[in-house]
Each structure stands twice: as structure tokens, then as C-alpha cells.
């Protein structure tokens, strides 16, 4: 991508039609391909992992059970007993994002979580779900939350808009956080990879110096593995927190 002496750090996020003419006519780009791959990987992991259904689990089954337990505990600890109803949703969300983040780190791959359209759609899904659950559980009392309890009524014209803005900022912060982290990580990887190529073009001295960016990229890859898991975790835990506030009376 970074050909010659220019750094094209954002070119990696461009969408191209794949699968030839069929993909061209369906506007089918790498992003939905990676989404399908991510979903299939998670499903295959759970299916293959749980197929033995052994009392003493093997490695893969242990991993699948740990994943299940991790999200189950997160959902039930955060939301409460009602969290069991939302556990499949949170589980799907967490592993879809995690698989997307990690698949994006493979060479020739594409991180679909680096597009704000994708993350905003996921965040709006969470937001709309939490509003619907709130209205169903709390009814009209839901709107009473926009006025902080115990505040003087005279301040309502100031406090209510602030509360509403704070509420509306949830899907924005949820989507921007994930998208910005993924974009930043991939841009950094691309930049240092381009430095390597540029330095390697300088002859013997450059060949030696070019090792530096490679070392940095190895460290960045480790950082990206952390960020990918952490962002999926943050997305899932915030979903749980919003749903807890929705089911609380």
C-alpha cells in the first residue's frame, strides 16, 4: 500500500468489491466478507469446542466454557438476575467485535470495526434495545430519570437538557471509542511498516535502520491484541450497564 516514498495510511480502510462480477453488482466489499468470517469462526469455535460435551473438558471445550462463563458472569453480575435474558445478546456482541478486531490484525485482512458505520450500527442497536427495555419495564417513569432527584425545580430548564444530551451521547461514545481505537491502531501499524520500506530503500545503512520500525511494529501488534480485547470488553460491559439501568425500577 505504501508504495515508494509516500505513506498511504488510510488506504487500508477503503472498501473494494470482492468476488468478481457478482460482488460488483451486489456492492459486496471486504467488510461484510470479514463479518461473515467472524461470525462463522465464533460459531465454529463454539460448535467444535462443545461437541465432545465431556465432563472433563479438553482444551478447546475448556476455552469455549471459559468464554461462556466470562460473559455469563459479566451479564449476571452487572445486570442482575434479569441479565440471563440478555446474555445471548451480550455474548454475540462481545465475540463478534472481538473476532472482528482480531481478524483485522491478520495480513491481507480487513478490520470491519474500523468503520464508523459498523460501530454506530452496533451502538444504535444497543441504544434502541436499552430504550425499548426501559420503556417496557419502567413505563412513563423512564422520563422521570431526566430530572435528577432532589434538584430544585427552578434548575430544570438547565438540568433536563444536560441529562438528555448525556443520555444521547451514549451511542456516539460507544461507537466512536471502538472505531477510533481500531483506526488509530491500524494507522500506526501502517505508518511503521511504511517506514521500514522507505528506510530499506536507502542502501546498507537503511537496511540496518529498517529493523527499528519492525521491532516497534511487533510491540504495536501486542498492544493491538490488548486493545482489541479491551474494546470488545468495554463495549460489552457498557451494554450490560445500560441494560442494568433499563431493567432497574
Amino acid at each position: 500500500m505504501a508504495a515508494g516514498s509516500t505513506i498511504d495510511a488510510l488506504g487500508q480502510f477503503e472498501l473494494h468489491p470482492v468476488l468478481g462480477g457478482l460482488g460488483q453488482s451486489l456492492r459486496f466489499s471486504q467488510s461484510p466478507v470479514m463479518m461473515i468470517v467472524a461470525s462463522a469462526l465464533v460459531l465454529a469455535f463454539l460448535y467444535v469446542g462443545m461437541r465432545p460435551a465431556a465432563v472433563v473438558p479438553g482444551r478447546l471445550q475448556s476455552a469455549a466454557e471459559i468464554c461462556y462463563d466470562f460473559i455469563y458472569n459479566m451479564a449476571v453480575d452487572t445486570i442482575g438476575a434479569e441479565g440471563r435474558a440478555f446474555f445471548p445478546f451480550v455474548f454475540t456482541l462481545f465475540f463478534f467485535i472481538l473476532a472482528g478486531n482480531y481478524l483485522g490484525l491478520l495480513p491481507f485482512s480487513f478490520a470491519f470495526t474500523s468503520h464508523v458505520a459498523v460501530t454506530l450500527a452496533l451502538a444504535l442497536l444497543v441504544f434502541v434495545l436499552s430504550v425499548v427495555v426501559s420503556l417496557k419495564v419502567q413505563g412513563a417513569k423512564f422520563f422521570a430519570h431526566f430530572m435528577p432527584a432532589g434538584a430544585p425545580v427552578a434548575l430544570a430548564p438547565l438540568l433536563v437538557p444536560i441529562e438528555i444530551l448525556s443520555f444521547l451521547s451514549r451511542p456516539v461514545s460507544l461507537s466512536i471509542r471502538l472505531f477510533a481505537n481500531m483506526v488509530a491502531g491500524h494507522v500506526m501499524l501502517e505508518m511503521f511498516a511504511a517506514f521500514t520500506i522507505m528506510l530499506a530503500g536507502l542502501g546498507l545503512v537503511g537496511d540496518v535502520l529498517a529493523v527499528g520500525p519492525v521491532v516497534i511494529n511487533i510491540a504495536l501488534m501486542a498492544l493491538e491484541l490488548l486493545v482489541g480485547a479491551l474494546q470488545a470488553y468495554v463495549f460489552a460491559i457498557l451494554t450490560c450497564i445500560y441494560l442494568r439501568e433499563a431493567v432497574a425500577h
Partner: peptide, 25 residues
């Protein structure tokens, strides 16, 4: 540990996103 790190990462975007929503509205 995980949520502490999460809080650190959240703080900045929480602030900016509310401002973005306000400006947009």
C-alpha cells in the same frame, strides 16, 4: 484491572461524544 483500564479509555470519549451530540443538535 480490566475495568480500571476500561475507565481510563472511556473518559476521553465520554467527554468528546457529549460535546459532539450537543454541537450536532
Amino acid at each position: 484491572d480490566m475495568s480500571d483500564l476500561g475507565i481510563v479509555l472511556r473518559a476521553g470519549t465520554e467527554m468528546v461524544s457529549a460535546l459532539v451530540v450537543g454541537v450536532a443538535i
